[in-house]
Design a binder for these strands. Structure first.
Lengths: 148, 148
DNA sequence: TTGCGTGCAAAGGTTTTGCATGGCA
DNA sequence: TGCCATGCAAAACCTTTGCACGCAA
């Protein structure tokens, strides 16, 4: 983790937004819109640069792109150890589930022993439907609608 | 699976390339370069359209983007059932391993029962290092070099 | 002949880079 | 004051779309 850098109004608000949405991923565009709504418009360049920095510092996970969309980012607790477990993301509402249970060890072990493959959790995403979005559940899809 | 469409020289060669590389993913750019090397240059538009068609027909799996790169595609056997198992991709050489063993059921079941999550294999990729590319192995990295 | 495939040009979108300015420490 | 952060403009990419023409069946 490198040094903190300056604390500016923009960065503070972006970080707040990331932390509020730590249970799912957000895109650069969404951050931009949010900042605009806050009457604190920020250039996309600034967002990209700040996010790159945060990712290098390990405070952010970057996903190449969710199902054909563009890159998305997710805040991670500094000590959450997101490198040790896989992540499930709901394709409907965007929620991210951290698979940090005992079973994670079994997966890594099986893949290692049976397939000779050394798992790398950072950047790996398993898609599907979360509890709330599965058919038959009452649909909690507000988040999904917001996305476009 | 929809109808076959016309058989043209370009399509034949693109399909051959996809099948030759069925053990890993390829990008539109790589296909373009390959076609150029074959003295059979094809417009990128054509590649995109053909790939879209193949994906709709289920002969191709499309990945949103591998580790920050752009979309990549992989040929799948018509009856390979790639919707039923996850895929491991080596970040070094690009090889893809089909996780179509008994353990796949355990993963899906655990994720379902413990996390209420309905797995969706298509598009999900787990990254890591394959047998040949793991440190300590003799490095088979020709493929990795080709990529850039 | 008919309809699909292809190339070209252009557009839309995301992300990056250079440069000058402004602001935090 | 000295960096670092920011905005702006421009560029580099990736991908899609419209249109006209060519070619397979």
């Amino acid at each position: 983790m490198t040094k903190q850098g300056y604390r500016t109004n923009s960065r503070t608000k972006i970080m707040e937004f990331l932390q509020e949405n730590r249970n799912k991923t957000v895109t650069v565009r969404e951050i931009g819109i949010h900042m605009h709504d806050l009457d604190c418009p920020v250039n996309v360049t600034t967002i990209y640069r700040y996010l790159d920095k945060l990712e290098k510092d390990g405070q952010l996970m970057k996903y190449a792109g969710e199902k054909g969309e563009k890159a998305s980012y997710q805040y991670v607790e500094p000590d959450q150890g997101c490198d040790d477990h896989l992540h499930l993301q709901c394709v409907s509402c965007g929620a991210v589930i951290h698979l940090d249970c005992h079973f994670m060890d079994e997966i890594a072990e099986h893949i290692d022993r049976e397939h000779g493959f050394d798992l790398q959790c950072r950047g790996s995403v398993i898609y599907g439907l979360c509890q709330n979005c599965r058919p038959g559940q009452r649909a909690h899809r507000q988040a999904a609608e917001v996305k476009k």
